[in-house]
Simulated scan of single mutants.
Amino acid sequence: MKALLLLVIFTLLSSLGDGSVGSIISSSLFDQMLKHRNDAACPGKGFYTYTAFIAATNSFSGFGTTGDDATKKREIAAFLAQTSHETTGGWPTAPDGPYAWGYCFISERNPPKDYCVANSQWPCAAGKKYYGRGPIQISYNYNYGPAGKAIGSDLLKNPDLVATDATISFKTALWFWMTPQSPMPSCHDVITGRWTPSNADRAAGRLTGYGVTTNIINGGLECGNGSDARVADRIGFYKRYCDLLGVSYGDNLDCYNPRPFTSTAAHVDPGRQTSSQYSHSGKLGKTPCDADPCRNGRHFKHSTLSYSTQSKLKLRRDRVGKSPSRSRPICRSPTTEKQATH
């Protein structure tokens, strides 16, 4: 117990140094941003702690520490906004508004299968399931494998760590955030201005700004089709967090018109229906990770939880439509370089 207390104190003190994420977002501000994450109605109550968040960010050099103060704040706001959308329990008339209910959920509810596909590099462990878990809802063995390798945990053998160890859970989301997959840049490079759009990107309307991070995460479903409530929800979280951090939003917040990266991505089997911008690299085999019919965002079933304030309310996971955007799994190439530092 004493050792754990010392670890917590060390983590908090180490975060207060100049240039760290902890010097930008305090524990009290974190609680204000994710105001209802510990509500009694949230399945994730008590899981997503500030200490775990700071410990995870300290393992990824560059996150929240790149650029000037405004850039650092925007990256933290963008990361928490995108992951809040993926884990939200909010609804339009929720107390304090829908954007105060991020980080309510931990795991995919009622997963229809084990998300195990044949892969020689990242083979499934017997009896293990790789459904969506954590802030970014990482899914499939070929994502758990490289994510685990990058953060120093064997997530193929122990995928439940993403739902039981908050630091590991945050680290998987940060791994996704920091790792590029051609032709897509990383969310980190986009939001910090380190990504320069190519001529093809410009022709497709993909310009530097928060909207490209949405395109990276779920562009195949949400981008290039005009106004979309899911995109608006992501922007709502982002604006709220930017306001709390005292930073401007930047340009190009939505992806209503820019085309998804799918249109330029390679290695997608043209004979199968895809619903997301992600695809396997050639080293992963011939089947695109998003060719699975469950990737069209209609299999993710959430229960409706009762919530009581002065009147009876409903905590609704499907706040912007019939199903959440993270009803399809995260796809990420397992060939990327290790991002974490230890």
Rank of each mutant, 00 (worst) to 15 (best):
C289T: 09
R206M: 02
L174Y: 05
D290Q: 14
G152P: 08
L161E: 06
S186I: 02
P146G: 12
P334W: 13
G89M: 03
S275D: 09
G127Q: 05
G22Q: 06
K45F: 00
S279P: 00
S186N: 11
N225Q: 10
G19S: 04
F300P: 00
L313D: 00
A78F: 05
G193M: 02
D165W: 10
V8L: 15
C187N: 14
A229Y: 07
L221G: 07
F237P: 06
E222C: 08
N215S: 15
F60E: 01
G209R: 07
F79G: 06
Y241C: 02
G145Y: 14
I76D: 04
G127R: 00
S323T: 01
R206H: 04
T57R: 06
G44R: 11
T336I: 06
I106S: 00
G102N: 12
Y278C: 13
Y115T: 10
R332T: 01
V21P: 12
L12Q: 13
A125L: 00
A232M: 03
T336Q: 15
C242H: 05
T264C: 05
P324V: 04
Q137L: 07
D114P: 13
Y140L: 10
S153Q: 15
N119I: 12
W101V: 04
R295F: 00
F176P: 10
Q273W: 01
L284G: 13
T57M: 12
I216K: 02
E222M: 07
R332H: 10
P258M: 08
T167E: 10
A78V: 01
D189Q: 08
G127I: 04
N58T: 08
P183G: 11
S327Q: 02
W177D: 01
C255R: 06
Y210V: 06
S26R: 15
G193D: 00
L80G: 02
F30G: 13
K128S: 09
